[in-house]
C-alpha cells in the first residue's frame, strides 16, 4: 500500500499546529519516497534532533512503509530567515 499525501498531511496537522507544510512525493508515484518541510510554533525551544524525533514518531507507521524519508523542521521565525537567505 503506497502512502498517500493526505495521510501524511493529516497525521502532521493533527499532531501539531502547522504554520506551513510542504510534502513532496519524490518517488515518481510509488509513494515510497517523501520529503517534507514542517513549520510550527511547537518547535520553539526544541533541538533539531528533538523535532525530528517528534515527526518520526508522528509518522512512525508511514515511515516504516517508505523507502526514503527526509525532513526539515523550522519555527516560523527560522523559516522566514531561511526563505530570505535562499532568495
Amino acid at each position: 500500500m503506497p502512502i498517500s499525501l493526505p495521510d501524511l498531511e493529516n497525521a502532521i496537522r493533527t499532531a501539531i499546529p502547522v504554520a506551513h507544510l510542504e510534502i513532496e512525493d519524490q518517488s515518481n508515484g510509488c509513494g515510497e519516497n517523501y520529503a517534507i518541510v514542517v513549520v510550527s510554533d511547537a518547535f520553539e525551544g526544541k533541538t533539531t534532533l528533538a523535532r525530528h524525533r517528534f515527526i518520526n514518531e508522528v509518522l512512525k507507521n508511514e515511515i516504516a512503509e517508505m523507502h526514503a524519508f527526509s525532513q526539515k523542521t523550522f519555527t516560523p521565525k527560522q523559516y522566514e530567515a531561511h526563505l530570505q537567505k535562499s532568495t
Binding site: 493533527t14 499532531a15 501539531i16 510550527s40 510554533d41 511547537a42 525551544g45 524525533r53 517528534f54 512512525k60
Partner: peptide, 13 residues
C-alpha cells in the same frame, strides 16, 4: 498513534 503526541504540550517531545 500515541495520543500523548496529539497535543502540542512541551512534554510530549
Amino acid at each position: 498513534r500515541p495520543s500523548a503526541l496529539l497535543t502540542s504540550s512541551p512534554s510530549s517531545f
